[in-house]
Each structure stands twice: as C-alpha cells, then as structure tokens.
Simulated assay, not measured.
Amino acid sequence: MSGGVPPAGAVRWGVTLPLAGLGLHRHREIVEALPSLGYGDVWTGEGGGYDGLTALTAALAWSPGLRAGTGVLPAQTRGPGVLAQTAASMAELGQGEVLLGIGSSVPAHVTALNGRPHGRPYAHVRDLLRFLRRAFDGEHVVETYETFSIDFELRRRPPVRPKVIVGALRPGMLKLAFTEGDGAITNVLAAHEVPRIVEAAGPPAGGQELVVKIFVTPTDDTVYARAAGRAFLGWILNQPPYRAFHDWLGRGDALAASRAAWDAGDRRGAAEALPDSVVDELWVHGSPEECRAHIARYLHPGVTAVELHITPTPELDAAPGALPEVLAALRVPQDQAGPRRS
C-alpha cells in the first residue's frame, strides 16, 4: 500500500505524536511523510507530558487529510462545549475525520495534575459522550445531565462529522462505547487478550471503531527495553482502573508483588517486581522485524485501527533520521494482516 488511506475493510495504521526523540518543532517533515510510509492516522495521549491537542493541530496543518485521534482526553478536565468546539475546529482544519477519544483517565492525571475531582468517572464519560454526539449531529443541546448542565450549539459544523470513541478497558465502558458511541480505544493488554475485548464490546454497528494502542520499543537491547517497559508499566498497572482491568484479564496473581510494593510506597520496587513475562507481553520490543511479528498478533478481525506508541531507543537516539525506516518496518502489510470485521 503506497498511501496512508487503506482500502475498505483494511486496518488503519497510526502513530502517537510526538514521536520518540524528536521535538515537536521538528515533526513537520516526518508527518508529511507518514502517508507514504503507510500511516494515515496520527494520535495523541494526555498525561504528564504534552497536551493531547497541540501536536494533532500541527499535524493537520502540515498534512491535511490525515485522520486525527485523541487516545484519550480525560473527560473531566475540559468543558464539554470546549471539547466539541475543538474537535470541530480540527475537523475543519484537516478536512477529514477526527476521532475524539474521551475516557475516565486516572486520578493522577485528573486530580493531581488538574485539580479536578475524579469521582463518578463512568457517569461523566457517559454524559459527555451523549452530549458530544448530539452536538456533532447539529442539535442545539439544552440538557441537565447527571454530571453537568449545558446550553450549547455548534455555530460551524465541520465538513466531516467527528466520531466520539471511548477509552475502554472492561465490559461496562466497552458496552457504552459500542451501544452509544462510535467505538473504543484500548491499551496495555497482550495480543492474545484482544479477542476478549472484542467479545465484551459486542457486535459493532457500521463505521464503529476498535482501536488498539500498542507500546513499542524497537531495539535489540532487551535489558534497555525491559527497563523502559517496567518504568511505565510499574506505574500504569498500579492505577486503580488498570488494576481492575488486569484482574478481569486474570493477571492479578502475576502482579501481586508489584502491587504490594506500590502499596508500601516503593514505586521502584513495584516496577522491579514485574515479571519479565508480563513486560514482554504488554511491551513490544526487539528488532523492528521482531516487533512487527508481535504487532501482527494484535490484528484480530475486530480491530479497525492500530496506534503505535514508539518509545525512545539507543538506536534512534544515535540516528534519529532512521525513524521513517523503522516506522515502515513496523507496519504489517495488508496481505499479512488478515480479514477485518465489517
């Protein structure tokens, strides 16, 4: 495939911005090259680093036609009307589809970083989802929801209606995402666990998305890669939503030592206590070719898009110009990806 827009029914490929080891001000050249590398989507997350919107706006200005997605924005940290306006503005700028991913996030991002309460996360996501879909349909929304009240109407409707997807881990959020939204984005799971997500989500409607975000450290240095994985996984797996998620997946016993260290205030110990087997399942690493083979195992027919979050490596630090070649090597060719679920 020579361009970033896949044929009908094919999985879409995207990358998380900013890319590893590359300042945002240096992204234009590689963003413009993404479609030629087979990537039609750009994504952002939002935690303690970059915000979840600036990089996407820059990418759409540099390369209109890319599909932009947030994976995800915390539902509690921005006003509902501002979120609707932002997604509509981005859709107009890029003249394409925007996937506005919203989620409950974690207390560390909502309360510690933003001073907002993290209470009633499911209700807040549900209410925001319902509002956004009505607003994008062109409705003047005057409503009192359980978690907020609003009087809002988009004055300029975008050329392509944004989709609203939900950051979802367990059955409750997955059902919400597929019964009331445009689909879901999920992450921090092993490839063999994707079918369980698909089953919990239930049958999709036309045009709904299931996006899988995969963390990838493309390096032959196993010690480095596992250390990078532990540094992140030791934190995320001990956040309450992810503890519940991995209990549901049946990984609670394997994480018991890490949880005990975390609960005792030993964050380094929580990371070090993670078994290699857990790190290797949840954190893709190896040569680009080995990573591609691992990524291919995530391509269940229910998956519509893959978001690759590329982390820094010694090789990319030494030769950042090799990043386009690495990205091209990580993407699984369509003829090896298998059929998609329609």
Score class of each variant (00 low, 15 high):
V31S: 03
S63K: 06
Y50T: 09
G49Y: 09
A61Y: 07
R28C: 12
L60R: 06
P64S: 09
T70D: 07
E29N: 13
A58R: 07
T57R: 10
G71F: 07
G52I: 02
A59W: 11
A33S: 14
G65I: 13
G49K: 06
E29A: 12
Y39R: 01
L24W: 11
A33L: 14
D41L: 05
T54H: 15
R26A: 09
V42M: 15
H27R: 10
G47T: 07
D51P: 12
L53R: 07
R26S: 11
G40E: 13
W43F: 15
G21S: 11
G47N: 13
A59Y: 12
W62V: 14
G21I: 04
A68M: 08
A68Q: 02
A61M: 14
L60H: 04
E32G: 08
A58F: 08
A59T: 13
A33M: 14
P64V: 07
D51T: 11
H25I: 10
A68G: 06
W43Y: 15
W43T: 03
E29Y: 03
T57N: 04
L56H: 05
S63L: 03
A58N: 15
E29F: 05
E46W: 09
T57G: 15
L60T: 05
R67H: 14
G52T: 05
G71Q: 03
A59L: 12
G40K: 04
T57V: 14
E46R: 08
R28Y: 03
D51F: 06
P64G: 12
G69W: 03
G71Y: 10
D41A: 01
Y50N: 09
D41T: 00
I30D: 01
L34R: 00
G49I: 02
S63Y: 01
L34S: 01
H27Y: 13
E32Q: 05
